[in-house]
Simulated scan of single mutants.
Amino acid sequence: MTPELGIIEGFYGRPWTWAEREEAAVCLSFHGYRFYHFAPKADLFLRRRWQEPHPAEDAVRLASLSYVCRAHGMRFGVGLSPYEVYRDFNADVREALTRKLAFLDEIGIDDLAILFDDMGGDIPDLAQRQVEIAHWIGERTVASRLLVCPSYYTDDPILDRIFGARPASYLEDLGRLLDPTIEILWTGEEVCAREFSTAHLERVTAQLGRKPFLWDNYPVNDGPRMSQFLHLRAFTGRPASIAAHISAHGVNPASQPFLSRIPALTLPMSYEQGDDYAYGAALKDAATKVLGPDFAETLIGDLLVLNDSGLDRLSESAVMKLRARYSAFDHPAAREIIDWLDGGYRITQEIMDTQ
């Protein structure tokens, strides 16, 4: 059994272009992906400046992306991060939120994710406040599916260190009070989970009172550390057995749109093949489909360098050799590799702090 699969464009740093988004949606729709959630950290009008209207050009392109997704059998959704509105959900905030919801309705959305991540959370009644906002939004959106990302969306203690200690019984309270039709996003035992086990997902289901909607942070490669690597390997640690324990599986892609398709194509294989899934063979199959046989063979031969070594560990001569090697391929993915080698996808802490 394969769960509903989709893309959650939710990474920091340099965003995809509108054309790259539409092309990714079309490509992945042919490989079993059924939703596309637009939530890039670089879109400030969905995050720090959410109360301001989107520029007219962006509104047109969002509507176009929605149309393309729907035309190819994918639900289109948007992730909205109304920064810390739970601290004071006053009349002015509600008016601004009403305007933003009307805008999203107009461009055409099937899914709306209210994202409470990346915000301070050390408030005793945090769950109750967030539930009130989610229910208020649910009464005013045309989206047929509403999702909530908790402030504490993983067991990972790094969130407690950055955003304050999570309130006692936060997840249990959120699950108990939130309308059971509203999905809850979850990234696993870590922000970037190495694997998902049925035991873990069963425990989270009990806490949330519903199956979690996975926000899978692979192959995403944002952040000062991860942007040093190209995450190209096939999916592992996502056994087909978890399908019965999740409501859907969303993939947060890498900064490189074409290269992201390689691991993305292996996730449906993992579910479909079950115990017969072999990640090496899946990688070769996916890479060949995305790149063609010659390019795929070259890329797989360089996995230890591109995927595992890290950009800062490459000597100048190694970078020059790789640039020359991939310049021989007239392909968007080759240009992404060269751009990465040149530092074009490097992410700094300043970028993360301001997006």
Rank of each mutant, 00 (worst) to 15 (best):
D312W: 07
F258L: 10
D88A: 15
A264Y: 01
R75P: 02
S64N: 15
T198D: 04
A24L: 10
D330C: 10
R194Q: 08
E22V: 11
E272Y: 13
Q256T: 12
G310P: 14
A199M: 08
A281V: 03
D285K: 03
I337D: 00
E316Y: 02
I300P: 04
E190A: 15
Y326G: 05
A254G: 09
L174G: 00
V93I: 12
S309I: 13
T288K: 02
G250T: 06
W18K: 03
V191F: 01
F229I: 13
L28S: 05
Q128W: 01
F30S: 15
L230G: 08
C27E: 10
I246T: 07
I347L: 09
L208E: 00
R233Q: 07
L159M: 11
R325I: 02
R70H: 08
G301H: 08
D155R: 10
F89A: 10
E23W: 11
R34L: 03
G164M: 05
F235R: 03
K100L: 08
L101S: 08
L230K: 07
A254Y: 05
E316D: 06
E106L: 04
E106C: 02
S255Q: 15
K289N: 10
V251Y: 00
D111W: 06
G250Q: 05
A243S: 14
A59T: 13
L230W: 15
M352R: 11
S64D: 11
W215Q: 06
D173L: 05
E20D: 11
L104H: 05
R225L: 15
K289L: 14
Q228C: 12
L147F: 09
Y279C: 00
P257H: 10
P263Q: 02
A278F: 13
V26G: 13
S169M: 10
A324Y: 07
F38V: 05
D110C: 05
A286I: 01
Y271K: 00
V131M: 04
P3M: 00
G121N: 01
A59I: 10
A102I: 12
F196Y: 14
V93R: 04
Y218E: 12
M1A: 06
A240R: 00
A199W: 01
A296P: 00
D342A: 13
L201N: 02
E297R: 13
E57P: 00
L341A: 01
F11S: 00
D111R: 14
L46F: 09
Y67V: 04
G310A: 15
D275W: 02
Q207V: 07
C149A: 14
P239R: 05
A278N: 12
F30W: 14
G10H: 07
R346L: 06
I109F: 01
D276T: 04
A296T: 03
I133Y: 01
M352L: 09
P15L: 14
S66I: 02
L283K: 00
F89N: 14
